[in-house]
Design a protein around this nucleic acid. Sequence first.
DNA 1: CAGTTGTTATACAAATAATAGAACAGATTT
DNA 2: AAATCTGTTCTATTATTTGTATAACAACTG
Lengths: 129, 129
Amino acid sequence: MFIEIEPDSAIPIYLQLAQQIMEGIAREELAPETPLPSVRAFAADLSMNMHTVNKAYHYLEEKKMIEIIPKKGVFIHKDAVRSATAEEKIRMEEELRPILAEALCLQISREELAAMIEKMVREIREGSK
Amino acid sequence: MFIEIEPDSAIPIYLQLAQQIMEGIAREELAPETPLPSVRAFAADLSMNMHTVNKAYHYLEEKKMIEIIPKKGVFIHKDAVRSATAEEKIRMEEELRPILAEALCLQISREELAAMIEKMVREIREGSK
DNA sequence: CAGTTGTTATACAAATAATAGAACAGATTT
DNA sequence: AAATCTGTTCTATTATTTGTATAACAACTG
């Protein structure tokens, strides 16, 4: 799994890490039950602090995307790929909202928006940047 | 224009304000050239600090959604409703990316995603929460 | 002239982000 | 059994972001 962190991004590095792991799950490169590196090993590999990796892990655990088993290790959640709950859909809608408001101002048509989404889904699936 | 700020939200209040103004533009309640309240008046109205409103204004100015004319006032940008540039589309795609990764994990179908988008667009257009 | 405008400067408090080192207790490996 | 590895917890420090607070400036408006 290739992780690429941009230190100067406006997005905190713990979030970048969490998002890229989630992309790995989405593209099924990281299947359920797959073990993730230990916080120390991952931190060393990515040249960051153990606590930063730990924060990314707990962010993903909160989203039920990974399972943290103390003293054992961290694994992709058994139900990482699942049907969204009503609550999860509402949260997603709220995240979409400001982006859609901007899209309306910028006169992005439904067709073009659909095309942008297809493009990004393809990139996630391919693991390309 | 009704603005509702949630002080305990994870989203900074200056961003909440900026996003709700952008929604007002998207729903054409705030037409180009329309004046916005002064930083002081708006801050008093929303019970927040002048600098916080100022920060929201500059965020929107950066996005070319409003025009700040020193010593005169703040107005909805003449071209607030316009065709997106290539750069603007790329930024929007990058914002969509982590949401789509989660949507893939949560097995949101293209049809359901389209329905969610239609729902949020409708809510923005209606100005409902 | 008085009031309003966005701007700038300084200051402060709180929260967040990131790093650092150490220790703990349970699991695994040798 | 000993050594190693695991996530956890604790304390600490630094830097940045967020939000509030005052004050003053210069230009525009009534």
